[in-house]
Write a protein that binds this DNA or RNA. Structure first.
Lengths: 329, 329
DNA sequence: TTGAAAGCGGTACCAT
DNA sequence: ATGGTACCGCTTTCAA
């Protein structure tokens, strides 16, 4: 069943059927009615490939993230997909893992599918050495980055001010009397660097000399973080608070502390389910995906319809206080 | 840049270029080399819409799930997407939420996009009243269901035997001496029903009369489950073990118990990251997504290439023991 | 081994 | 308001 069949059965030309299909005003109500009747009767759906061929778009946006099984990315993908669908776009999902080569490859895969735009989730897509893959993608379609910062033509960023959040966390902890604050992180993506800078700056402002022992890089897992913190404790490295770049790491630290019946303030990042799930529940920085994602999609859609949009939108983070902040002494 | 340009620049016809593009053996090595040179030089990528129009496929599979921000679905989507991509298929993601109407609508959206197949994740897509939307989808493309059971033409299921898992959990708890086992669940999807049947059957086999008070339906959230269990405890309803249809609920129960310094065995389902994150860590049933998803994709791809595949594949579950099983008394 | 040409199913411009 | 038709870019059959 194609547009020719509908034309034949309704007694009009394919041009008129096409007009009805696309809601053109230049069709008499009677004609429209007759044609719609046939369309419904035959349960006809236009062929998107043919339409795509003509219009050179299938209204699809490619979503690239390293790993949807990560709760943080999952949440972002969920939000983004919903927003896109509301705007009549489909989401082509692509999870790359961490290798740069696969990122490049899959970026090409998406472009080959002629997506209307690419949405990068997370700063993991920004390599400080080389962003040429993003640059070349942006030559074909707009690239929108959620929580990453890449300044290139046709590339737009919507991100959360995690640097300031980190700074304020440390200030808060210092204000509470903490002086030796352990910082756990996993990777030095853009987001990772920004947080560490916030950490350092706050210490400097509080006239605390950063202790290299207290800036600890650990594997991105509860067990990895737990083991690292346990080792620290065994080595009698002292600290009176913990901040972690990721809830997962914070939970690991928490487990190590709980095992020794130690209680110090702990702050995580991402405000994921596990922050609520762990005991004591974890104070965490919410990086406002609920705001970032709709904003990113909204801007992208406006861009695609010809509007000008800002190259960069920054949103403040929000600390969600739970049990691990104010410790009963 | 299209196939005509490549033909012109290489001095051959579009037919030959097409053959090279599709790896046809009927092209002389010399010709192939020349054409490939031009293709590479011009950085040419075939137009997928035109190809789709001719072949009536763009090698895309629609993935339908209620919510990717749920860690369980996120993991499934992650696995499925990876497997599909390895087989050269793209994943069109579609999250429906819980309303049946939206499920139907989005199923139509996917079909309108001319996906090669639809992959339903989770039993939430099976309505006991009416599966006509699945039936009509299956008339157009094969439908593969992961962890759901719908027996219809052109519909295939790969699922985990959670009923037996529930049965064995209860038997295990009974064996440990428990007699009043609280069961928490949220929704009665296929998966939900199967678990509850396993629960009941085990009680029957152990000659325990099921107490309606101990089969508790709660909201799908940590807070919801916690509140419900707290209420139960306030009402002095006694129980000596807990099983929950979802880790989230188990964690809620755990929190309620911990707050009262009570410790009884707790078993969850899904073996998600929060099972590891909570303290004490949660014993949970792994429903083998790592097996189900690759199997489902593999079968689907074979089906699409003309092979016959089984209508139903069942995989045993696996209990992952953590702190909440054997309680130090 | 290679080429010519007929689809695939739409959209949109130009007439009428 | 409606119809005729060129065009989008590829695959594939048929001939040579």
């Amino acid at each position: 069943m194609n547009i020719y069949d509908i034309a034949k059965r309704s007694g009009f030309s394919i041009a008129t059927v096409s007009r009805v299909l696309n809601g053109s005003p230049n069709v008499s109500p009677k004609t429209r009615g007759k044609i719609l009747d046939v369309i419904r009767r035959e349960d006809y759906t236009p062929n998107v490939f043919a339409r795509g061929l003509g219009l050179n778009t299938m209204r699809m946006v490619g979503i690239l993230c390293t790993d949807v099984s990560d709760t943080y990315y999952a949440k972002a993908v969920s939000l983004v997909e919903n927003c896109l669908r509301q705007k009549g776009f489909d989401a082509l999902l692509c999870c790359t893992g961490s290798g740069v080569d696969r990122k490049k490859k899959y970026l090409d895969v998406l472009l080959a599918k002629r997506v209307d735009a690419v949405l990068l989730i997370g700063s993991a897509f920004q390599e400080d050495t080389d962003n040429s893959h993003i640059a070349s993608a942006a030559q074909q379609v707009p690239v929108m980055i959620i929580n990453g910062l890449v300044e290139l033509p046709n590339t737009y960023c919507v991100l959360c001010d995690e640097g300031t959040a980190a700074y304020e966390n440390i200030s808060l902890l210092c204000d509470m009397g903490c002086r030796r604050i352990l910082y756990l992180y996993d990777v030095l993506t853009y987001s990772g660097c920004v947080k560490i800078e916030g950490y350092k700056k706050a210490l400097t402002d509080w006239k605390i000399t950063p202790d290299p022992l207290l800036m600890l890089r650990v594997p991105k897992s509860i067990e990895g973080a737990k083991a690292a913190v346990e080792k620290l404790l065994s080595n009698a490295v002292e600290f009176d608070a913990v901040m972690a770049s990721e809830d997962l790491l914070a939970v690991g630290a928490l487990k190590a502390l709980t095992a020794r019946e130690m209680r110090v303030p702990v702050i995580g990042f991402n405000n994921s389910v596990i922050a609520e799930a762990c005991t004591p529940s974890l104070t965490s920085v919410d990086n406002r995906l609920e705001t970032l994602c709709p904003t990113a999609v909204d801007l992208l859609v406006r861009l695609l319809s010809g509007e000008e949009i800002p190259k960069k939108v920054m949103v403040p983070a929000q600390l969600v206080e739970r049990d691990t902040l104010h410790i009963a002494t």
